[in-house]
Structure formats: C-alpha cells, structure tokens
C-alpha cells in the first residue's frame, strides 16, 4: 500500500475496500481522476460505482484503503469535509430547493452579505449580478435568475446544480448519472455543459450508464465489475462494443 498516486491525479484512491454486512461492495479498488480531465466510471448495476463515489466524497467511510486528494492523503469523514476541501457532488435529485429562486439556490449557504451596523444583510443585487455572470460563463439559459426553480425544466435544474458546484470554487465536480432523468434535448444541453467545464479545466468525475455518452465526454474510462476495477481505457481508443464486453465480463 505504498506509493503516492501520480502528480496528475486530483482525486485518487488505493486499495479501497468496503462491505455492507456480508456483501462486499468494493475490493481493493485503486482509482484516479486527473486534473482538468473528465474521468468516467462505468459498470453494471451493483458493480460498485456508487459505493466508490460515496467513499471518495465522504458519504461512506471505507473499511480499508487510502484516499488522496490534491496530492495528499485525505480521508473524508463526511460530505461536509469533502465539500470544504473542494469536492462538490451533483446528485440526481437531492440538490435544489424547489421553492427558492435560481439566485437563492446558487448561493445557498454561501450568501453574499453586507454589514449594516450590527446586521449582516443579504446583498441581493450583488448575488443577482454574480449569478448572471456564473450562468453566462457556462452558457446556461434560464428565464430569469429570480424565477423559482420549481418552474424550470429538468435540464435547466441539472445545469443549475452543476453551475452551483462549479461556482463554489470546487476543484472536482462529481456527477452521479447527471442525465438519467432527462429527455434527449436536455441531455444534449447538459453534455454540452460538461464539455464547457472541461474546456475551463474543471476536473469532473462522471458516473454513467450510457456508454456512448461516456465516450463522447470523457478522457478516460474506468470500468467496474463486481466491486473491482477491471479495466482503464482511453475514451478515444475504445469502442462501444469493447465497453459492453468489459462491463459484462465477456472480454
């Protein structure tokens, strides 16, 4: 268990194991996501993708193994610690507050305030301005930053979740099935957004079921099967058939 991950790695792990009761979810998994790249994790249901991600962002604590973040050994006891260190997770559903506006969601729990005497009041004009800038930097279209999130489409909501993660200054954005619940056009929009993140050198870890999507978006693909990493391939050098074979174990 010696040896640090390569200096290109922003988020990595070595020898990670985790079991739930008698079920072995991860056995001796080593993984790394490189700085400024989109790293995909694929695998069948129950292959251990989600458990791996949950261990990396502090939702689950691994039984064994080491986690490295930004070149240093760095286990996270809970998601809050991971977020403070610079890892933002975009969950499929659990992220936006429907009744709040786009601005309020983008700045939730990191609101901009100005001091007025003894009071710290919200600086709403500044947040609106900043929110518009954040959205336009990623070319995200919403009717108005003052619109309630409830009235937006699934794709717009996902885009705002991603924008919030990036806007908090995250070094790594982890996305768990970001397009699973979206229609064709909305999926295309979110994919375009992920490409723009890559252009802006944001490191992304992408968990997906969709092999075509993974090949389109990522630099490197990690394939998991039955709790182990079975292959690492360059996205540019693989085919859909090869991925299917690796995932199912036919290769």
């Amino acid at each position: 268990m010696s040896g640090e991950p390569s200096s290109e790695a922003i988020l990595a792990c070595k020898g990670l194991s985790k079991h739930f009761g008698g079920v072995r979810a991860l056995s001796d998994v080593s993984f790394e996501a490189r700085r400024g790249e989109v790293t995909a994790v694929i695998g069948d249901n129950g292959a251990g993708k989600s458990t791996l991600i949950r261990c990396l962002v502090g939702v689950n604590v691994p039984d064994d193994g080491e986690i490295f973040f930004d070149g240093r050994r760095h286990p996270f006891a809970n998601p809050d610690e991971a977020r403070k260190a610079g890892i933002e997770t975009v969950h499929q559903n659990l992220s936006l507050i429907d009744e709040l506006t786009v601005v309020q969601n983008l700045f939730l729990n990191r609101e901009i305030v100005r001091r007025v005497g003894p009071l710290a009041l919200l600086d709403r004009p500044a947040m609106k301005r900043e929110a518009r800038a954040m959205l336009s930097r990623l070319s995200i279209n919403v009717p108005s930053v003052s619109a309630r999130v409830r009235r937006l489409s699934g794709g717009q909501r996902q885009a705002i979740s991603i924008c919030r993660a990036v806007g908090s200054g995250a070094k790594v954005v982890v996305m768990d099935e970001p397009t699973a619940a979206l229609g064709v056009q909305e999926t295309a929009n979110v994919e375009a957004l992920i490409r723009r993140l890559r252009e802006q050198a944001v490191s992304v870890v992408l968990v997906s079921h969709n092999f075509d999507q993974v090949r389109r978006l990522s630099d490197r693909i990690w394939v998991m099967r039955a709790g182990r990493v079975v292959a690492t391939v360059q996205s540019a050098e693989t085919t859909g058939n090869e991925l299917v074979a690796l995932v199912t174990g036919a290769a």
């Binding site: 936006l96 507050i97 429907d98 009744e99 709040l100 309020q104 939730l108 729990n109 609101e111 305030v113 009071l119 710290a120 009041l121 919200l122 709403r124």
Partner: peptide, 14 residues
C-alpha cells in the same frame, strides 16, 4: 434580508 431567512425557507422547502 438575512442568511437565516433563506436557510429557513430552504429548510421548509426541502
């Protein structure tokens, strides 16, 4: 006009 207020509404929302 305070962070508390937004957090209160967020807590009530989800």
């Amino acid at each position: 006009h305070t962070r508390f207020g937004v957090h209160l509404l967020a807590t009530g929302g989800q």
